[in-house]
Design a protein around this nucleic acid. Structure first.
Lengths: 127, 127
DNA sequence: CGGCATCCTCGCAGATACTG
DNA sequence: CAGTATCTGCGAGGATGCCG
């Protein structure tokens, strides 16, 4: 995981920022986990319940990556049975507004995307 | 490609928007292609030159997907040799500000992510 | 409960070669 | 020049089973 690929040159220096961002939030689960945690501190199991379809392997793996990137903090209470809680760090919080805006984009424009798909598929068939 | 997966329930209706967004820009190339096209109408070969490391297969595939989603328009001039130009649709343009902001986030905070990684890796070794 | 290790598979994506 | 077609690998990610 987290392959530190090296990109030689690029569109411009600017797009290079993009590669870096993708390096952080590339996995589809990453964003969903951050999204789930925006409601505050939460136990492992609860996050899992909130994200339909994620396996414990993927959730753990995503948590480790987010922790490594400094976006999520992990707290372990050495009790039996163990309690592990996760929460966004201040750095992680800075992503929230962006996620909100992207979600708003989807709300505003997704229907257009769907229409475009229908039109495209229709034209492809009668080709 | 474009698997129309059905997600039964979810975090909340809100995160469902996220799945949809990911469905559109999930591929790492998708975003880079949109990014390249923000400078205006462009030929296939030029886009390819701008995106370091993309294969023609992936570029074509990404273009088809973007076209289907109504984010990119494709124009063919039936000449020999063929000239094919691509440009963002108005719908595609609406994504640009978001991409710019995300890029800004990377500029602002990527160093913190790097530091967090160094710290995390250091602690893991001496564990 | 949370999480690591192992096995296995399925599909993304790279490489290569050929066409209008 | 801008594609398609085919082969192949390899790695993300699911399933299962065991541990503290």
């Amino acid at each position: 995981m987290t392959k530190t690929a090296v990109y030689k040159s690029d569109i411009s220096v600017s797009a290079c920022g993009y590669r870096r961002l993708l390096e952080i939030i590339s996995s589809k689960w990453t964003v969903l986990v951050i999204y789930a945690l925006q409601d505050g501190r939460m136990r492992y199991g609860e996050v899992r319940k909130r994200i339909e379809g994620i396996s414990q392997k993927m959730l753990t793996q995503t948590f480790r990556q987010l922790e490594r990137d400094g976006l999520v903090k992990r707290d372990v209470y050495p009790s039996v049975p163990p309690i592990v809680e996760y929460e966004l760090t201040p750095l992680g919080d800075t992503l929230i507004p962006h996620l909100r805006r992207l979600q708003q984009w989807t709300t505003d424009y997704y229907s257009q995307v769907e229409q475009a798909r229908v039109a495209y598929d229709r034209d492809s068939i009668s080709k």
